[in-house]
Write a protein that binds this DNA or RNA. Sequence first.
RNA 1: AAAGGCCGCCGGGCAGUCGCGCGUCCAGGGGACGUGAGGAAAGUCCGGGCUUCACCGGGCAGCGUGCAGGAUAACGUCCUGUCGGGGCAACUCGAAGGAAAGUGCCACAGAAACAAACCGCCGGGCAAAACCGGCAAGGGUGAAAUCGGGAGGUAAGAGCUCCCGGAGCGUCGCGGCGACGCGCGCUCGGGUAAACCCCACGCGAAGCAAGAUCGCUCGAAAGGGAUGGUUCGCCGUCCCGGACGGCCCGUCCGAACGAGCUACAUCGCACCGAGGCGCCCGGUAACGGUCGCCCCAGAGAGAUGGCUGCCGCCGCGCAAGCGGUACAGAAUCCGGCUUACAGGCGGCCUUUGCAC
RNA 2: GCGCCCGUAGCGUAGCUGGAUAACGCGCGGCCCUCCGAAGGCUGAGAUCGGGGGUUCGAAUCCCUCCGGGCGUA
Length: 110
Amino acid sequence: MRWYGSLRRAAHIAQVRRRGRRVSLPTLSAYGLAASGGASEIGITVSKALGSAVCRNLVRRRIRGALDELGPAQPAPARLLLVARPPAAQVPYRQLAADVAAAVAQLARR
RNA sequence: AAAGGCCGCCGGGCAGUCGCGCGUCCAGGGGACGUGAGGAAAGUCCGGGCUUCACCGGGCAGCGUGCAGGAUAACGUCCUGUCGGGGCAACUCGAAGGAAAGUGCCACAGAAACAAACCGCCGGGCAAAACCGGCAAGGGUGAAAUCGGGAGGUAAGAGCUCCCGGAGCGUCGCGGCGACGCGCGCUCGGGUAAACCCCACGCGAAGCAAGAUCGCUCGAAAGGGAUGGUUCGCCGUCCCGGACGGCCCGUCCGAACGAGCUACAUCGCACCGAGGCGCCCGGUAACGGUCGCCCCAGAGAGAUGGCUGCCGCCGCGCAAGCGGUACAGAAUCCGGCUUACAGGCGGCCUUUGCAC
RNA sequence: GCGCCCGUAGCGUAGCUGGAUAACGCGCGGCCCUCCGAAGGCUGAGAUCGGGGGUUCGAAUCCCUCCGGGCGUA
């Protein structure tokens, strides 16, 4: 079982993007907002600027894989939005995973 | 053996670890089992299934197709042929109906671009010319100049005649279902229809965000005019109005629903189909048929995966090793077309060389 | 999904319908003018007409097919 759910509602995404704290790294931007309770919800955005559908799928799955590696030992539940930036398509997996971990950690520190 | 042609197929494998969607079963926050991208899922260039609207029929417009026969649910697709181009050949390519129905256009050059004669040639005239008549062989222009080459013929010439070749036409003959081929006869009349057009054939429109179901809200509930008859109940004719989602004719109607929300709901939609695989039969083939087996992705913005190791394949290198492993990601479903694609496999055929 | 549009000098456009000169403005280079610059005048360069194939004597234009970009709609 994953430690997070999927951030689906357009209204929630807009709220996180507008009011959430923001962290910028070379391969991705991240927005975070504390949630009242329950499990965390995370959304991943990969725009057309990253490349073809195959390429975008790979980036999205790698980000999800990196999140799985973080494990369930996460602090308070939150709503996160991870937006991949163009360099994410060129970089090896280890570097992308490091950025994902850093982004989540910085948002959690608050 | 080399070079080439055609057809079909694959397009990574194994293990570890962390995970996901759907289905079934067990089952109190989980677990077990099964299953889970492509040959192009792509581009959206065509054709259908399905759905709603229209539907009683005809015509026009519009769009598309364009050798013949066949295959198919259908097609602009496929197969087999015909004709024409390419190749020594296997084979391959072709929007391949009509220009003696009509209209338009053919720049510049050139006398002339479809109706004719500039330089010429010949005859008359004549000292020579002007001029009159005949001719279209030669020159020149051009992308293209009245079928090409040769001979006869003639004042000079001309399909005027003959031979070879080419093209078109025919109530013609033979072969073929047919396109067409061979023969005979006649004619020889520029090009362009991916210019308008003519001919033949096909097409109702929109699309799964189609549409259907449950619940709720709102709106509208239908006739009007003229005229004739009347037993004052009403009936007939004409006009206005409405429907026939391009227009017209013709037809029908004057009564019943229409719009929106819920809505990221449920169904459509994901087990049953123009379904897949295999054997056999018919057919040159596309394809069709009998029988057997199989059930085979699917949604709340979206699962089918991430990482590591080993192996395989390719390139570089003596080696250790290093680098690479294509094109590309389902969204209503099928049949095609087109485009992209590292590398590899199988079968048949052609030409040339060598050996026997 | 459906229905459309555009691609021409560095930039913005015309020419396309109906075939034969690729034109205009801004910008750029040089010269003149000025003490210098702006403005102005003269002059010059700069184009695979998005790529490929076809029709035609001839294609930016017509046809087919790819590529890139944009718009509308529910």
